[in-house]
Simulated assay, not measured.
Amino acid sequence: MKIILTQEVSGLGTPGDIVEVKNGYGRNYLLPQGFAITWTKGAEKQVTSIKRARSAREIRDLGHANEVKAQIEGLKVNLRVRAGDGGRLFGSVTPAEVVDAVKAAGGPALDRRRLEMPGHIKSTGTYQVKIKLHPEVAATFDLNVVQG
């Protein structure tokens, strides 16, 4: 089955890639989850728009990725959340909240889908968060979750 990826799927490709997968994997997982669309001649236009949008927000090259890594690792990222007694949160910290906290701390705009969170963050404290900037470059920074 020939499909066009609309989101990054690890081990398969990035948005805009045209890939060949087994029928069951495409029909039962990728298409219903919204990770891909079926390939048609008309979908080629969608591929170009997806690739154009991706290139606008993607890290340009390895050197640029290393610059962004140095910038991120030098940040002190604090995230204020509502918490009850004992530092237990009402809910959990989402990747979107972490990306907003990085931007508020003076960091670059990041893609929330590239964050690797240390499980579900459900209490106050300091956590190590990793982000993949480039296939060869990953940055790690401390996220300080405080009651506020």
Rank of each mutant, 00 (worst) to 15 (best):
E58F: 00
H120S: 14
E73H: 02
A53P: 00
V99W: 03
T40H: 12
G107R: 04
S49R: 11
N78I: 12
G119Y: 08
R60Y: 06
R113F: 09
E44K: 13
P95T: 11
L62V: 08
M117D: 10
P118M: 10
N66M: 08
N66L: 11
G84E: 04
L115K: 06
V77C: 03
Q71H: 10
D100N: 15
V47E: 02
K76I: 09
V68K: 00
G106A: 07
R52M: 06
A56L: 14
Q33G: 05
S92P: 03
V81T: 03
D111L: 10
P108H: 13
V99I: 13
R82T: 13
G107V: 08
I72G: 01
R80S: 14
L62F: 13
L30I: 04
E20F: 07
R82V: 07
F90V: 11
A83K: 00
K41E: 13
G74P: 02
G74Y: 05
F35S: 08
T124P: 05
Q71R: 10
N78S: 11
I37E: 12
T40I: 05
V102F: 04
A43N: 14
G107W: 06
G63H: 09
N23R: 15
G119D: 09
L115Q: 07
V19W: 06
I18M: 14
P95Q: 09
I121L: 10
K103N: 08
V47N: 01
K76W: 00
A101S: 11
Q128W: 08
A105N: 10
A36F: 04
A36S: 09
K122G: 11
P95D: 11
A56I: 13
K69P: 00
G74H: 03
G119F: 10
L115F: 15
G107H: 05
L62Q: 05
L31N: 03
Y127I: 08
V129G: 12
I37F: 09
E73K: 02
G107A: 10
R82D: 04
E20I: 12
G86F: 01
L110E: 06
S123A: 15
Q71L: 09
T38N: 14
N28V: 06
N66F: 00
K22P: 01
A109W: 05
A104G: 05
I72D: 02
A96T: 13
L79Y: 01
T126C: 07
R88E: 12
R88W: 04
K45E: 14
G91T: 08
I50A: 01
D100V: 07
T124I: 15
R112Y: 11
Y29T: 07
N78K: 14
V19A: 07
A53E: 15
T94F: 06
A70V: 04
D17F: 03
K41Y: 06
V77F: 02
I59M: 07
E67N: 04
A105V: 10
I59D: 02
A101D: 07
A101W: 03
A56N: 05
A56M: 12
L79P: 01
E44W: 00
G74Q: 04
N78L: 12
D85T: 12
F35Q: 14
P118D: 11
W39T: 10
R113Q: 14
T126V: 15
R114P: 02
N66G: 00
K41H: 10
